[in-house]
Structures are given as C-alpha cells and as structure tokens.
Amino acid sequence: MHGEYRVALRNNRLGLWLFFLSESFLFMGILVSRFYLWGNTRPELNQLNGLLVTTVLLLSSFTMNRAETALVQNDRKTFLNCLLLTVALGTLFLAGVVVFEWGGHIRPSDGAYGAVLFGMTGMHALHVVSGIVFILIVWNNGRRGLYSSEQHWGVEACAIWWHYVDLVWVFFYPALYLMGQAVH
C-alpha cells in the first residue's frame, strides 16, 4: 500500500475511534439522565415495536458488514446492493421509531417520561439519519468506482459509524424497553 495512505489511514482510524469515545460520553450522559430521572421505572411502551426496530437495526448492521466484506472481496455488485439494503433497513428503523414510538400515547412534554424517551430516541435518530446520509454518499462514490479492495477508508469509516449507531441502540433498547418496572 502507498506509504502516505498508510499514515493517513492510521490517523483516520485513531481519530474516528477517539470520536466514538467522545460520542460515548454523550450517550452515557443521556443514559445517566434516564436512570437519574426514571430510576427503576419505565413507561409502558409497545414491546413488539421495540423488538422489531431492534431486529431491523441489527439486520442493517449485518448488511453493512456484508457490504464492506464484499468490497474487500472485490465483489462490487454485492457491495453496492448491500449499501442500499442498509439504507432501506435504516429508514425502516427510523419509520418504526417515528411512526410507532413517537406517535404513541406519550408526548415530549409529558414529564420526565416524555422528555427522556424523546431525548434518547431523538438523539439516536439524529445519528441514524447522519449514518444514512453517509452511506448514500459512499454508495454514490462507490458507484463511480472510487474505492478499491485495498484503499477504501470512506467505506470503512461509514461502516464502523453505522455499527456504532447500532452499538448505541444495544444499550438504549434495554434502557427504554426492558430495564425497570413498567408503570401503567
């Protein structure tokens, strides 16, 4: 590999991971707020919806991983298709949150339940949207053949960004749907 690219790749990876670390403090702050305000309780939410959106996001992480693997294996068609599949699943996840969770019986102004529920899902949704935009950019550049199986930092960054968004949900899902006593 080209020496300059190697140096840049090393910097980029470290930089992106440091950014994840920083973002983790943001999401930890939100989680702490959740436990501070809700304590060991939670509002009654639609469990089926929670499982569904979690599954969709998990699947999208799989397709994202597959896209990256395909690129490394020089399989361009699978790479591009899996990116689009990821976008579709990400959008489905957003729809699940926005339509079913935000359209439910709790509004943002309803005490700490409303505030934290919308704060958590809102901040996460913001990251999902950024991930979708990122994937679309990478898809467009990939379509034009800007990435090779050796040099594709853009794809790698996009993929781990997307996985990071999934990672956050790994903690948010139990915090929202499972932990604590549901209050009717």
Binding site: M1, R13, N65
Partner: peptide, 12 residues
C-alpha cells in the same frame, strides 16, 4: 463488526 484491532495495527 468494527474491527477495533485495526486501530492498534500500523495501518496495514
């Protein structure tokens, strides 16, 4: 999924 080990590799 995120290949955290690559951060510690020397960019290969």
């Amino acid at each position: 999924f995120m290949h955290v080990a690559t951060v510690f590799a020397a960019g290969d």
